[in-house]
Nucleic acid binder design. Structure first.
Lengths: 243, 243
DNA sequence: TTATTTTTATGCCTGCACAGATTGGTGTCA
DNA sequence: TGACACCAATCTGTGCAGGCATAAAAATAA
């Protein structure tokens, strides 16, 4: 088998809960899961621990394993994000992530201009040059890979590990955008220029310039993909009820 | 016993790893842990699963439980944040969190002005009025509680669950600021006015105003506490090596 | 160097005892 | 009779102990 048994159980239950097939408030029994999934108690128990860590379930004595509602899910958990993107909450997840990156990336660019190590500035210049090249050529496949690397690098170069950690879900957004055909046939000249400018600004330690140009990229990105979440409902989590 | 046994093991190991007492690359054996902590294998295994979920360890056959380095830790995990704040990385953790909230809160205010439900707008007005009252009175204890509630509300009212989820660590920042005596004896009139304005703007659906005033709050906040992380080293995580 | 065997720690399974929360019944008192 | 406090039965997760299977490192042989 490709991956460990308990990981399979996590995947099975997690995707079903996030997908809405096991509604909030449901109570499942460990013994039933053993039988249904044909695995032993230890596997179930470890899987439930992991799911509890993600905020998908709690397990209490005498009652069983209770499925929690979306407001309890950890929205930064990689699994949760993946499961949401594969569900009918895809729009809402993309919106949340995009709003987050719009907030964070300009600050990341600003910080990168101040503190990035030399090697990262160099690589950023290299990447942006290649983006220009393959972008003008209309090679969207290669452009996508470079774009992902570019934004991941800026986030990493900020020296803020919370920013850097957003690289993976942001890569998912970028892939989604091309897969869904929301990219123009070839990247706009403006976009290419902004990426180049961000790299230049970071190289020259022009923090405000880096921020401004990254903001331009974010504005365009937002306009290109905000159609994806037309009508997706917003979730308002009362921070008190949360605890 | 107050909490479950395996949670104790998670706490024990997690705090030691994040605190640097079990250095990266260390390999601990489940059998040794059983003996040292006097618990059974199932407890150890479940705890290890949770720690693996946080990115603190991986467990592989024939080798044992390998302790991972900080670049693999999930910086959004509540436990990880708490353990870092209790370690000598406190400065770096506060800086990361503060940079994140500086990035996010203005956007949250802007969104809140557009989409917040009526009840939240109302409560925001109430809270800001009380902040004025207790702030002028110099009652820092009550002011702190209101400040926490205020920022949590704005984040929640944005309708972005990723924003809303930052309320807990941001509350930790705010508490830290007063505990460490970085607050002025009584809040500045400017700060009070900005909070009031943010509440007003959100009530009036003035998105740009809400953003601007929140940005002012963030600028001052940053200046007040950036002394906390003087000299704390930045961590640059290469997004490729990460995976 | 390459292939094979040995070693060894985790992965997985099962039986058992315990803890604690829910439920329902029992008895007391108004 | 009815409301309420108390207690016992029951159910389910929690924790323990020990066993076999398996994968990967290390040692050995080709």
């Amino acid at each position: 088998m490709a991956t460990s048994l308990h990981a399979h159980v996590v995947e099975h239950l997690g995707s079903r809960i996030v997908g809405g097939f096991i509604p909030r408030g449901s109570i499942v029994l460990a013994a039933d899961l053993e039988q249904k999934l044909q695995v032993s108690r230890s596997v179930i128990r470890e899987a439930v621990r992991v799911l509890a860590q993600c905020g998908l379930v709690t397990s209490t004595k005498r009652v069983g394993i209770r499925v929690l509602g979306p407001e309890k899910w950890n929205p930064y958990d990689e699994n949760v994000i993946r499961w949401r993107l594969a569900s009918d909450q895809k729009g809402a997840q993309l919106r949340s992530l995009t709003e987050l990156r719009i907030s964070v990336e300009p600050m990341a660019a600003e910080l990168a201009a101040e503190v990035a190590p030399e090697a990262m500035r160099k690589e950023l210049m290299l990447i942006s040059a290649q983006m220009n090249h393959y972008g003008r050529q209309g090679d969207l496949r290669r452009f996508l890979a470079l774009d992902i690397r570019f934004h991941a690098l800026v986030l990493a170069a900020s020296g803020n590990e919370m920013f850097a950690n957003l690289a993976t879900p942001i890569a998912a957004i970028l892939r989604g955008r091309t897969e869904l055909g929301l990219m123009p046939e070839r990247p706009h000249e403006e976009a290419l220029a902004w990426h180049q400018s961000v790299a230049d600004n970071i190289s020259n330690m022009d923090a405000q310039g880096a921020r401004r140009n990254m903001e331009s990229i974010m504005r365009r990105t937002h306009n290109e993909i905000c159609s994806l979440w037309e009508g997706a409902p917003r979730v308002f989590v009362d921070p008190i009820a949360k605890k």
